[in-house]
Computed example of a mutant assay.
Amino acid sequence: MSYILGYDPDTLREKVDPRRCTERLAEIGEQRSLPALLERVWLLKVLERLDEALVLSDQSVRVARMAGTRKDLLRARILHASVQQWRGAYAAAVQELTTCAAEAEGQEWSGIAAFAYQHRGKTHFDSGDYDLARSDFKRALFLRQDAGATDEQLESTLLAVDAADRRRAAAVVAS
């Protein structure tokens, strides 16, 4: 079940039902499997409980390193970087996402690379660098198309490209 109801066109953040997310968080409880940890991190992030999300995302990266696959580790690291982004630690998030994107592309894991570029684009977007954001969103779009992504994933990336274009245009008009 997807908890994402859409995306805010101004912030590019997920729109969620906080009640459903809180209920799901309670359902998961203290489960320690990697999928449960990653879901808990994401739920805490979208509920803006960022301190808890950061601690748990650190733990999920450690668990993925010890017991997961390379793909699991990349997903955990990308989620960790997205928590850093939401906390305003843009440089750290960009650095982590850049390494994740490069590794995923090197392994020809288009879907994971697209996920990393999409989040790096959101990080650039939040930091006000709309040219780099647009470039990352376009790369994510290409990779998602290559990976056979769902219409919903492609639509979220197109929304991001459009938002970056709007912000770039507004910045030009303002200067």
Rank of each mutant, 00 (worst) to 15 (best):
G88C: 09
L79Q: 12
T11C: 12
E105D: 13
K122G: 13
A104N: 03
L56N: 11
E155T: 10
Q59S: 13
K45C: 10
S57P: 01
E108A: 14
L12P: 01
D126L: 12
G106A: 12
P18A: 10
A91H: 12
A147F: 03
A169I: 07
L47A: 12
V61L: 01
A140G: 03
A164R: 05
V63L: 14
E48Q: 14
G121L: 09
V61R: 03
D131C: 02
I78H: 00
A147I: 03
T123P: 01
L73W: 11
W42H: 11
E52A: 15
F125K: 05
V173D: 08
R77W: 02
I4N: 00
R139W: 05
R13K: 11
D129N: 13
L79F: 00
Y130W: 14
P18F: 09
E52K: 10
E152F: 01
D8H: 13
T69S: 15
R40W: 11
A114H: 00
R77V: 15
L74Q: 04
T157E: 04
F137V: 06
L12F: 02
E27N: 08
L5S: 11
K15C: 09
D17S: 09
R24T: 14
R144I: 01
F142N: 09
R167K: 15
E155Y: 04
A102P: 02
D10L: 13
S60D: 07
A163D: 10
M66T: 08
F137G: 02
E103W: 06
K15L: 15
E23P: 00
A91E: 15
L43H: 01
H119G: 01
D136H: 01
G6F: 06
A133L: 02
Q107I: 08
G68K: 09
I112D: 01
Q85H: 10
S57W: 02
R134W: 05
R19T: 13
L34K: 07
R120C: 06
R20F: 01
V55E: 15
R168C: 07
S135G: 08
V172C: 08
M1N: 07
L47I: 11
E105S: 08
R65F: 06
A171M: 12
L132E: 14
D58W: 02
D51W: 01
A116E: 03
L73Q: 15
E48I: 03
R134E: 15
A160D: 12
V63Y: 05
P35L: 13
I112T: 12
A53T: 06
D72V: 13
L5G: 08
D58S: 10
D72T: 09
E39G: 11
R19Y: 07
R134Y: 08
A113H: 00
S127F: 04
T157R: 02
A93T: 02
R65C: 12
A81V: 03
D17N: 14
